[in-house]
């Protein structure tokens, strides 16, 4: 069983929901990337989504755009990010790591080289925002051969046909984008999400993570009532942006711990 599947199975056993924080790798500086990953894991992250910076992050709002720009200015590339994962794995063999980013850095490296490098670094899942399933057959196949989960998005506008198509390729978990918009947009409407999830569950047995627009412990808890996992991105990246280098690990840990305890409260 993959690390992601093992993680979700264990959570289910203890009747808990997964907390999936997102950070942009190399933000605020490359030297803090691995310490931040450990801080997330220690504060209660079940899966870590690691953003691969890209020059043209079309699906991201201003917060994650700025994080991408900060990382790129310091020379962070897809290869650097794979290096972060390798280093993280030296002392953490349990927490699944999912790379999240855009197609072109992977295109530039080449599918097979990337898939091999991701496997040897200890990557568990890959979510490429601009590879929808109809463009991802070969890529998803190469990941599958290496037991790396190809993770796909679903959105409020996804039709039943789309949900079925995603079901064919999706592994690990599916990521439900909870609102019409980019990352970091306004707060989501939990009732809207609750209405859509049964449509997805009718065709997809994988755990469902919900993200985009979750900004506080209260919303996270409300989402956890209906979904299997809660993804926190822009809020966390904002915390990193506004923290001094000395405080950033503490501040991020505190935020993740707060959300963790809200999720676990009975």
């Amino acid at each position: 069983m993959s690390r992601i599947a093992t993680t979700f199975a264990a959570l289910k056993q203890s009747n808990r929901k997964a907390l999936i924080p997102f950070i942009t790798a190399g933000d605020p500086e490359p030297a803090l990337a691995v310490p931040l990953m450990h801080a997330l894991a220690n504060a209660g992250a079940d899966v870590i989504e690691l953003g691969v910076p890209f020059s043209d992050p079309m699906a991201d709002g201003p917060t994650i755009q700025r994080a991408s720009e900060r990382a790129l200015k310091q020379g962070v590339s897809l290869r650097t990010v794979l290096g972060f994962v390798t280093e993280f794995r030296e002392t953490n063999g349990a927490t699944p790591v999912v790379l999240m980013g855009y197609a072109n850095p992977i295109e530039a490296m080449g599918y097979e080289e990337f898939a091999d490098a991701a496997l040897s670094a200890g990557v568990d899942g890959v979510l490429v925002v601009d590879y929808p399933p109809q463009e991802a057959a070969r890529f998803a196949g190469l990941l599958d051969q290496r037991k790396i989960d190809a993770i796909f998005l679903l959105s409020p506008t996804s039709t039943e046909l789309r949900i079925k198509e995603v079901a064919r390729y999706a592994r690990g978990y599916v990521y439900y984008v909870s609102l019409r918009g980019v990352t970091g947009a306004a707060n989501l409407d939990v009732a809207d999400v609750a209405k859509k999830l049964p449509d997805i569950r009718a065709h997809i047995q994988l755990p469902i993570g919900v993200g985009f627009g979750i900004r506080d412990a209260q919303t996270a808890r409300a989402v956890a009532e209906i979904a299997d996992a809660v993804v926190i991105g822009s809020r966390l990246v904002q915390e990193i942006e506004s923290s001094s280098r000395e405080d950033v690990l503490d501040n991020v840990s505190r935020l993740v711990r707060d959300i963790r305890s809200a999720l676990d409260r009975r």
Binding site: M58, A103, D130, P132, Q134, S155, T157, T159, R162, V177
Partner: peptide, 14 residues
């Protein structure tokens, strides 16, 4: 060519 966009745009493009 193709359709390399996030899922959020697929329905609009269809």
């Amino acid at each position: 060519g193709g359709v390399f966009v996030a899922e959020t745009l697929i329905e609009a493009l269809d």
